[in-house]
Design a protein around this nucleic acid. Structure first.
Lengths: 280, 280
DNA sequence: CGTTGCGTTGAGAGGCTTCAACCTAGGTGG
DNA sequence: CCACCTAGGTTGAAGCCTCTCAACGCAACG
């Protein structure tokens, strides 16, 4: 298989998960199903957007409805490719996806990791072609959110729309921080910073256990995200282990000394604009 | 002077350029002054936004009104700093500004160049603090666009609002391309790519003469933008000159062989989403 | 005419890459 | 149930791209 020639995910298949949502009436009607508190807490989109502002019960209900019936997609499947026409956005409910670009030389740069609760910019559809590719990294539960649903949210759920815009701003701030990471940090610093960021972002959607989380990523993928070679990623990981900062076995990363790891990566979470959430 | 301890621009002074605009009535009234065709062509904001869609005469008039009475600001002045509360956005009419971050080590990363017609994300105000600093690079003509004016545009000038959102998407795409640049291109390639991008962006607002444009940037600033040292920027520039690709004297960059420079930098303008404008 | 910021050049060092081999674990098929 | 297979992790060696340090030139400016 040529490098990064990945399978493509059938975008709008017959059994699309969103058939059955009736946007025009359901949410307005009285009697939409109240969410179990635990249900809302488990939904990463609701978790995330509530961090950006107060949502109404109707807001939470529509978000839960959107998140219902996700598709299970295997690892390394393209969701949408550079050159494709964007139609709506993808919402990640579980697993890890990424935005990336591949050079003609075969070199690849991962531009962002999409974690549970993350979704693309809500008005990408204004542009006629994608300038990068979005692929799953691990197996994911994914929902394709159609332009109609997005329009519905912006028209009838202003608090959700506002939270989505803030979410987009944070995505952009994260991209800037990645540029700083790759532009002027050493290999060990880059990895330290990346791990701190992932911990904080995953914690915000309750996908961590203490300072430990699932990291189903190869070292080669870490290399593509940090602008390093996989060999050097390997050695830098060993350095972080040797210093007693992390433990990385298989697909589980445990941060053994978060304060020091933050210090090494010069990590400040301000760019994630978590506000008064449990500061990490 | 400590590195990058720059002067701060007084944000909302008495003689703010925008006093005198009466948003609530003027644009709706019949009889707003018609723009000279040449006037609209010279205004980089109008030029740029027209590239994203058709604007009405009223749209152009309000944009011209906003652009009236800019402030002249010297080089290396901070417009807004990391940690500040964003209030509205800055619009660059002439000159060059940049977004950047400074590490505790003193290392700096330039995150984006703001060229004539560029302005910040229209809803930054949703976030309570800036996570990076915006400074002039060369002397600039700058307008501070208040949140009220932005709100007015989004409510009464849908085509302008739409163009602004597209503009924001392009800014984000540009940021992604910069990450690719720094993440996986060599020094010469990075500079070649940057120069191609600047040419195309400046050409879109008519700030070029052929394949030549004003580049009032020190080599140290090019280094901060490309994640290189200034010494290596110097040597890479010499390499580009030696290959007959560019001529860089003082503050003027002339691209002598655009096709080859593009090839060297692997430059494709798709991420700028210029659509059917004069493709460069 | 001295100062200052910036471009230029040289030398040495080091971080990171490349190439290549080997190891390990997990999955597959006989 | 075991042998094979493959992807990914690990290790070594060599080299180069880029950095740092330092000196010098030069033009603009007060």
């Amino acid at each position: 298989m040529p490098p990064f020639a990945q399978q493509r995910f059938a975008l709008l298949s017959e059994d699309d998960a969103l058939v059955g949502i009736h946007l025009t009436d359901a949410p307005q009607q009285a009697g939409y199903r109240l969410l179990e508190p635990s249900e809302a807490r488990r939904n990463p989109l609701i978790r995330k957007l509530e961090g950006f502002g107060v949502l109404s019960e109707a807001d939470r209900a529509i978000l839960a409805q959107i998140s219902a019936n996700p598709r299970l997609i295997g690892p390394r499947i393209d969701l949408i490719r550079e050159g494709d026409r964007p139609e709506g956005v993808f919402l990640i409910l579980d697993g890890m996806a990424c935005r990336h670009k591949v050079r003609q030389t075969g070199a690849r740069q991962i531009l962002a990791y999409l974690l549970p609760g993350d979704l693309g910019d809500h008005d990408v559809a204004l542009l006629d072609t994608m300038d990068h590719t979005i692929s799953t990294v691990s197996a994911c539960r994914v929902v394709h959110v159609s332009p109609e649903i997005i329009a519905h949210l912006t028209q009838h759920h202003p608090q959700v729309a506002r939270a989505l815009r803030m979410s987009t701003l944070v995505d952009e701030a994260t991209l800037r921080e990645w540029l700083v990471n790759v532009g002027c940090r050493s290999a060990v610093e880059r990895l330290a910073h990346l791990f701190c960021e992932l911990l904080v972002r995953l914690r915000a959607v309750d996908r961590t256990e203490g300072d430990s989380f699932d990291l189903s990523v190869t070292q080669g993928e870490l290399a593509d995200a940090t602008g390093l070679s996989n060999v050097h990623v390997n050695r830098s990981l060993q350095e972080l282990r040797r210093q007693g900062l992390i433990e990385l076995k298989g697909r589980r990363l445990t941060i053994l000394n978060l304060p020091r790891l933050k210090a090494v990566g010069e990590f400040r979470s301000n760019y994630l604009h978590l506000g008064n959430r449990t500061a990490a």
